[in-house]
């Protein structure tokens, strides 16, 4: 972790609607190391998805700044995204383009970067292979199950070769079994690709299994509550869940979260 992939300094986001102001994220500062897998966890509405979208450059912070590899989000984007985009996002809702087949979805980012058809289809095919969907590359999204759709979403993001992967509760809409299979696949692909990942999740066990560090956020307005280092080696697999250290970490994170979740449920925020 010699270099910093993401540096966020006192990032604040305030939404204004009909005169009322809601602070979604307040004075949130983190750094994510090069090649690190970092998870954000927090109660519903704590602004973790908002933060992710600010890193993606989809929305602007009200105050503070986010740098990716030392460059400011906006300036850096225009200069370099054709060679190498700063971020690629995986969405909870999959967000596949229904009118594009699997291979056309996976190659979308490359197409926007004007890569010639043959080249981008070869590259897309490689990532489709990686997620085990080779036979489905001509299928449209409506012909796929939820788990398959999210495999396409993951392939699409990796295929665009971003500096940073942003994953917004990617398995949140999947059933528990499919989720477990996909977590393992993500571990495998991530270990092959060695990308910096910023991962938003509700599931503590998922955060512990996948991450190098877990950031616990407070209830709204979201800000940093605690940083938990996950001291397991790599490569990891599901067997990790049987260790007592895993249970310990899970419980520790839950203790940090409990107060925040209760506060959210009581509507105190």
């Amino acid at each position: 972790m010699a270099r910093e992939a993401i540096t966020a300094r006192e990032v604040t986001k305030v939404y204004r609607a009909r005169g009322a102001a809601t602070t979604a994220v307040q004075d949130f500062s983190i750094t994510v190391g090069e090649g690190e897998f970092l998870s954000l966890i927090g109660p519903s509405g704590c602004g973790k998805s908002t933060f992710l979208r600010m890193v993606a450059g989809l929305i602007r912070p009200t105050a503070g700044e986010i740098r990716i590899r030392g460059e400011l989000e906006e300036g850096g984007r225009e200069r370099s995204w054709r060679d190498r985009p700063l971020t690629a996002m995986v969405f909870q809702e999959y967000a596949l383009f229904p009118w594009r087949t699997v291979i056309e979805n996976v190659g979308f980012g490359l197409e926007m970067r004007d890569m010639p058809r043959q080249e981008r289809e070869a590259l897309a095919a490689r990532y489709i292979e990686k997620v085990g969907l080779r036979r489905f590359s001509g299928y449209y999204p409506y012909q796929l199950s939820g788990g398959m759709k999210q495999r396409v979403g993951i392939a699409r993001a990796f295929c665009n070769n971003p500096e940073i992967m942003l994953m917004d509760e990617p398995f949140g809409a999947l059933d528990a079994q499919t989720r477990t299979v996909l977590q393992q696949e993500l571990l495998r692909i991530w270990e092959e690709e060695k990308k910096t990942v910023l991962y938003v999740t509700h599931a503590i066990d998922e955060a512990v299994l996948l991450s190098d560090r877990v950031i616990v956020m407070t209830a709204q307005p979201g800000t940093l509550k605690a940083v938990v280092a996950i001291d397991f080696g790599r490569p990891r697999d599901l067997k990790l869940k049987t260790s007592s250290r895993f249970a310990e970490l899970e419980y520790m994170i839950w203790q940090l979260l409990e107060e925040e979740v209760t506060r959210t449920l009581r509507g105190e925020t």
Partner: peptide
């Protein structure tokens, strides 16, 4: 669906290409 527009923007679609593609 706004999330499709977000995805398209995140993957680099802008202006005319956003419109046609």
């Amino acid at each position: 669906d706004p999330v499709l527009i977000e995805a398209a923007r995140n993957f680099g679609a802008r202006g005319r290409r956003m419109f046609w593609k």
